Structure formats: structure tokens, C-alpha cells
Amino acid sequence: MRLRFPAEPRHRAWWPVLIAAVLALVLAGCLGSGSEGENGFPPGGATVSPFTGLPAEAGPVLAAKIDNVGPARPHTGLGAADICYVEQVEGGQTRILAVLSSQLPPKLGPIRSARESDIELLRQFGEPALAYSGAQSGLNPLIAAAPLYALPPGKAPDAYFRDSGRSAPHNLYLRPERLLGHAPEASEAADIGFRFGAAPTGGRQETEYTVRYPDSRFDFRWSPADKKWLVAMDGVAARTTDGGRITVSTVVVQRVAVRDSEFRDRWGSVSPFTETVGSGTALVLRDGKAYDARWSRDGERDGTTFTTPSGEPLNFAPGQIWVMLTGR
């Protein structure tokens, strides 16, 4: 913290006042004590990410649609994401919508196609950049009209490449830095309703938890050594090619309505639509405990708030957040 000293007057009566002020700052922990301030943010006005609660410079928001079937794993660059939303797609499988701002990996992927649900979900981020491989032809006009920078390979060819070591369509990767070069006015990270800090009272011990989709499964196991949740997908430990085992600070199981959309994939399967505007119940996993919660999002432009059953804000543990959007 910077202190600005006044010009020296003819007397030194201001020194006791200044010394008292400095001592008050020290006692309050504002001179780099490392203690948490309001909402778990670093004290003293340090810049933090509204997505993770960790120190970070303000940066543009990049969302990327990540493939998540067996041949697409292990992923690359996923550990750099601030938030990972898991969404249901055709056939009961899932894809990940990774949201990045605090840091950018050299490459990210594999990248796959967008869905109608992404438009509603991303509206709370202002006008982010969206990386995706393409979309169903009938969906393209909706994406084009949405308040986001839609950047598939055709619009940003230098930002994508194919990995010859993998088979298509699971081999398309993104260079995030280059993609953001095509969206210089993308919105910067801002408050989307998340709060960080000490855990609420109560909760129950929960060292293992499973989230099931019709044809996909995620297991979260609490690691006291890492002080994070270890992720497994379909019974296999989840890893990245560039960062090892995937670990998560907070897991949010957000129960939402999942209905049929008007769109189908190339094989005729109906694409599910995940409703993220409204309200409902949730379960928050942090620090080896589970907390019952409620979620609320009034409109597409609004963030999503999470509260305890009594209505108090429910703090997340600072770090990467996984939001499991599930109808179960």
C-alpha cells in the first residue's frame, strides 16, 4: 500500500496522527498480512478475480466449448480455467464450457461445437469471446445475434490447430492468446454473483460425491493433502496433458431444468437445453463438507447467487470452480 505524506508544515503536530493511522492499518492486516478481507478477497484493495477469489489482474473473458467423451481425454489447458460448467448434450453425454480470464494456457482443448444453452449461460458475462468448432446450421443465426464474440475456426483460423496425434473430431485445439486478439473489446471479468470466504456453519462431512448424467459420471473425492477435490470422469482419474491430476476447490451441483430444444445433431438426436435462469436447489462441496444451498438468477443479464437455506450468501473456497448443471 502506498502512503502519501503531506508537505512538511512549520510544526510536526501531524506526525502522531500519521503514526496512529499506520498502526491501525497494520493491526487491520492491510499491509500485506495475507489475511482474508470481505468475501475472502485479499485485504487492502488488492485486485482479485470475481470468478475465483484469488489475486488476478483484470482480463477479458474467454469461454471455450470443450469436448468430453473418452477419446477427447486427457484434456489440455483445463487447469487454467477459472470456472468449468458441465452441461448435458445429446445421448446423455457431457461437454465442458470453460471460462478463462485470470490466466491463459498456451493451448486449450479439444474444442467442440456450441449449443443453444451456451447463449443463455454466457449472457451473465457481458460480451465474452466464445471459442467453438461450429454449430448446427439453424443455431448459427442465434449465436450471431447474441451479445458475444463468436469465433469458430472460420473467423479466427490462426487461433486453431489440429493435433496429428489424435483422430478427428477430437483433435481441434485453441491458442487462447491469439483468439482474444480477434476480440479486443471482449468484456473483462466482473461480478457474476459468486462470493468467497469462510465456510458457512453446519454442513456435513462428505469426502466422496458422484454426479450422474444419463450416460456420464463425475466423481469428486476430497484430498486432505491437496485441500482440494480430485476429479474422476466415468471412473477414471481426470488428468490434463500439461498439469497432471485435475483438482477443484469448490464443486457446485446446480439442479436445473433440462428440456428438449428445437435443435438436433447430425444424427437426429434432440439437443437438450439447460435452463440457467430461474431458481432452484444446489449442493456446494468445499473443504471436505457438503452444504445445502439455493441458487437464483433473475434474468439472462444477471449473475447467479448461491445462498444457504436461511438466505445467507454461501461462500465458495477460493480457487477453480466446477458447476455441474444437472437435472438430477
Score class of each variant (00 low, 15 high):
residue 2 R to L: 15
residue 4 R to L: 14
residue 9 P to R: 13
residue 11 H to G: 06
residue 11 H to V: 07
residue 15 W to V: 14
residue 23 L to K: 12
residue 25 L to R: 05
residue 26 V to K: 02
residue 32 G to Y: 02
residue 36 E to G: 04
residue 36 E to A: 14
residue 37 G to W: 04
residue 39 N to K: 00
residue 47 T to A: 08
residue 48 V to S: 13
residue 50 P to M: 03
residue 51 F to W: 10
residue 52 T to K: 09
residue 52 T to E: 01
residue 53 G to E: 06
residue 55 P to D: 00
residue 58 A to W: 00
residue 58 A to I: 05
residue 59 G to Y: 01
residue 63 A to T: 09
residue 67 D to A: 15
residue 68 N to T: 08
residue 69 V to N: 12
residue 69 V to I: 10
residue 71 P to R: 06
residue 76 T to Q: 11
residue 78 L to M: 13
residue 82 D to K: 07
residue 85 Y to E: 10
residue 88 Q to R: 14
residue 93 Q to N: 14
residue 98 A to N: 00
residue 100 L to K: 05
residue 104 L to G: 10
residue 104 L to Y: 05
residue 107 K to G: 03
residue 107 K to L: 09
residue 107 K to E: 15
residue 108 L to E: 05
residue 113 S to A: 10
residue 117 S to A: 13
residue 119 I to D: 00
residue 119 I to N: 04
residue 122 L to H: 09
residue 123 R to E: 13
residue 130 L to C: 06
residue 135 A to M: 07
residue 136 Q to R: 08
residue 139 L to G: 14
residue 141 P to C: 01
residue 146 A to G: 10
residue 151 L to P: 09
residue 151 L to M: 11
residue 154 G to Q: 11
residue 154 G to V: 13
residue 156 A to V: 13
residue 160 Y to H: 01
residue 161 F to E: 07
residue 161 F to A: 03
residue 163 D to Q: 05
residue 164 S to N: 11
residue 166 R to A: 04
residue 167 S to T: 02
residue 172 L to D: 01
residue 173 Y to I: 03
residue 174 L to E: 09
residue 177 E to R: 05
residue 178 R to H: 01
residue 180 L to K: 08
residue 187 S to C: 10
residue 192 I to E: 07
residue 197 G to Y: 02
residue 198 A to Y: 12
residue 199 A to H: 02
residue 200 P to Y: 11
residue 207 T to A: 11
residue 209 Y to I: 05
residue 212 R to Q: 13
residue 218 F to V: 04
residue 220 F to C: 05
residue 223 S to I: 05
residue 230 L to T: 13
residue 230 L to P: 03
residue 241 T to E: 15
residue 241 T to P: 02
residue 242 D to W: 03
residue 242 D to A: 07
residue 247 T to E: 13
residue 248 V to D: 01
residue 252 V to A: 02
residue 254 Q to V: 08
residue 257 A to H: 11
residue 258 V to Y: 02
residue 258 V to A: 02
residue 258 V to I: 15
residue 258 V to M: 04
residue 260 D to A: 13
residue 264 R to Y: 05
residue 266 R to L: 11
residue 266 R to A: 14
residue 268 G to S: 13
residue 272 P to F: 11
residue 274 T to A: 10
residue 280 G to P: 12
residue 284 V to F: 00
residue 285 L to A: 00
residue 290 A to D: 06
residue 291 Y to E: 06
residue 295 W to V: 11
residue 296 S to A: 13
residue 303 G to Y: 05
residue 304 T to G: 09
residue 308 T to N: 03
residue 315 N to V: 04
residue 317 A to E: 15
residue 317 A to L: 14
residue 320 Q to I: 04
residue 324 M to V: 03
residue 325 L to I: 10
residue 328 R to S: 12
